[in-house]
């Protein structure tokens, strides 16, 4: 029996030597079969243990088991080593330069004017307003007359209106403000009314770095019981703080618009303490309310308006407003 054990020790030493050189998992599987399989010396020796007398069998059994465990452990080590190497080789083979594919999926850019408009809408929606829209080609009634600007009024000239070849001369025009939307809303809706009306407006301004003949404005209109000029000033203040930041201050200065009275310009403060004129506002003129079938003794309200494009120009310090209509991707994709 001692001979058998010493042969097994020899076999184990051979296994150790060959495992050190094993090249891959397939070769390892072959070694596994050779040294631990059914026909291996270790398996055969275990079967032969039954023929020994009990005293000898115990000592021999322990020795065979010890050798087998050692070989098993060595094979497991080799398997772990080979598996790690194989995985490392696979990973190395799959190496990618991830910067090669960077621009495959590109999100488009939302136009700056839309971004500004959406932001404004969202702020006003948060303040309880809905968003009203209307046509860009309008009649003199909606663009002027209903707004208390009769045909002879000097203010008409200041709008530099673009007219179109429909109806009588100067009867149909490209709207010079979004105020016609206010009129249409008041005609079709019972107060209370809380709307903002964003949209494109038109003037006979030759396109240059600071002007476009077609540009975008947003106007607000509130009609309710007991609305005061204090509410107007407070609403503008609340909007400006929400949109520009809490540190920005507002002020109202007397001005004149035929459709509001009292009328005001509203300014916002710059960081250096100076004031920037942002837009116009005022209490809706009783004639305008009457023109829309609203009793000015029962309802009062205010309106305000300012440019959307200008906000985009200010925010990004654009040096040429025409970029907003050129649609050059080198511009569009910056935002």
């Amino acid at each position: 029996m001692a001979l058998m054990i010493s042969e097994l020790e020899q076999t184990a030493a051979e296994a150790t030597a060959r495992l050190a050189d094993v090249a891959d998992l397939d070769a390892l599987a072959a070694l596994d079969a050779e040294f631990l399989g059914k026909k291996s010396a270790l398996t055969t020796a275990k079967k032969q243990l039954g023929g020994l007398d009990p005293d000898e069998r115990k000592a021999a059994g322990q020795a065979v088991n010890e050798i087998r465990k050692r070989v098993e452990a060595e094979i497991a080590d080799a398997r772990a080593r080979l598996t790690a190497t194989a995985r490392a080789q696979q990973l190395e083979a799959e190496r990618l330069d991830l910067t090669e594919l960077r621009n495959d999926i590109r999100r488009g850019s939302m136009h700056l004017v839309t971004q500004s408009r959406d932001r404004l809408e969202d702020v006003f929606v948060g303040m309880g307003f809905t968003v009203a829209e209307g046509p860009e080609v309008e009649t003199a009634w909606y663009n002027f007359e209903a707004l208390n600007i009769p045909e002879w009024h000097p203010a008409r000239g200041s709008f530099d209106t673009i007219f179109v070849n429909l109806g009588e001369p100067e009867e149909v025009m490209l709207r010079s403000h979004t105020s016609p939307v206010q009129i249409r809303t008041m005609e079709n809706t019972e107060p209370p009314i809380y709307i903002v009306a964003p949209g494109r407006t038109f003037r006979t301004d030759t396109a240059d770095a600071t002007h476009l003949p077609a540009f975008n404005q947003i106007e607000g209109l509130v009609i309710d019981r007991g609305i005061t000029m204090g509410d107007l000033a407070g609403t503008i203040d609340e909007f400006v703080r929400a949109f520009f930041g809490g540190e920005v201050k507002t002020r109202l200065r007397p001005s004149y618009f035929p459709f509001t009275e009292p009328s005001a310009e509203f300014d916002i403060s710059r960081p250096d303490g100076s004031w920037l004129e942002l837009g116009g506002c005022g209490m809706v003129h009783p004639n305008v309310l009457r023109n829309c079938g609203i009793d000015p003794e029962e309802w009062q309200g205010f309106a305000f308006g300012f440019g959307i494009d200008r906000l985009a120009v200010m925010r990004y310090q654009l040096d040429d407003i025409r970029e907003l209509v050129n649609n050059d991707v080198r511009f569009l994709r910056q935002f």
């Binding site: 006003f124 929606v125 307003f129 809905t130 209370p192 809380y194 309710d224 609305i227 509410d231 609340e238």
Partner: peptide, 11 residues
């Protein structure tokens, strides 16, 4: 400065 007391829901 005040704000309107209306209870309109914006959206």
């Amino acid at each position: 400065r005040t704000v309107p007391k209306g209870e309109a829901a914006g959206g």
